[in-house]
Simulated assay, not measured.
Amino acid sequence: MASDIRTVFGKLKRRLRQHGHHHDLPPSQVSVLLRLETEGSATVSHLARAEGMRPQSMSSVVAPLQQAGWVKGAPDPDDRRQTLMSLTPKCLKMLQEGRAARQDWLTARVSQKLSVQEQQQLQAALALLTRLVED
C-alpha cells in the first residue's frame, strides 16, 4: 500500500506541475522562489546553506531569476555589504496564478471523474492521510 500511495502522489504531483504555470523553471529555481516566498528575503549565502549548495552554485541559480524579473536584490539594511534577494510583484502574481490553475484543474478533475459518493470517500481518505503526516 505504501508503494501505491507514493506512486499515486507522484503522478498527482506531476499532473499538478503541468497545470501550475511555473514557466518551465528547473526545480532548483522553483525551490528558491518558494523558499523566498515562505521565509522572506535572504542573502544568496543563506539560500545556499538552506538548499545545501555552495554560494557560487546558488548564484548561478539566482542570476537567471533576476534576469527574468522574478527576484530582485536590495542592500541589507543591517549590513550594506550584503544583498537581500526577494520576490518581485511579477513573481508573486505568477505563484498565485499557478496555485489557482492547479486548484482549478484538481477541482474540475474531482467533480468530473468522481461521483458524489466517491468524493465523500476521498474526503475520508484525506483525513486518514492527514493523520499519517501529522507529528
Rank of each mutant, 00 (worst) to 15 (best):
P26H: 07
S3F: 09
L114Y: 11
E51I: 01
A74G: 11
P75A: 10
K113Q: 15
A50L: 13
M58P: 00
P77M: 02
S86R: 08
A63N: 07
V30T: 10
L84Q: 06
K13D: 10
G52A: 06
V133Q: 12
V110I: 14
L132C: 09
E37A: 11
V71K: 04
A127N: 02
S59L: 14
V32M: 08
Q112H: 14
L34M: 09
T7G: 01
S31V: 02
A108V: 01
T107Q: 13
Q18K: 12
L95N: 03
Q103K: 10
V8P: 00
A124I: 05
D135S: 00
A127W: 00
G52N: 08
R35F: 01
S31T: 12
E118P: 06
W70P: 03
D76K: 01
E97W: 03
A48G: 06
L129M: 13
V61A: 05
T107P: 02
I5W: 02
R81E: 12
Q120Y: 05
L12D: 04
A42R: 09
E97I: 00
P27D: 13
R81V: 08
K13V: 06
R15K: 13
S60D: 15
V62C: 07
A50G: 09
L132Y: 10
H23T: 13
L128E: 15
S115L: 07
K13M: 07
P64R: 06
C91T: 04
R15S: 12
Q67Y: 07
L126V: 14
I5M: 06
H22G: 05
A124M: 07
M58R: 01
L132I: 12
A63H: 10
Q119P: 03
H19P: 00
L106K: 01
K113N: 11
P55V: 03
W70G: 02
G20P: 03
G10T: 04
V61P: 02
L129D: 06
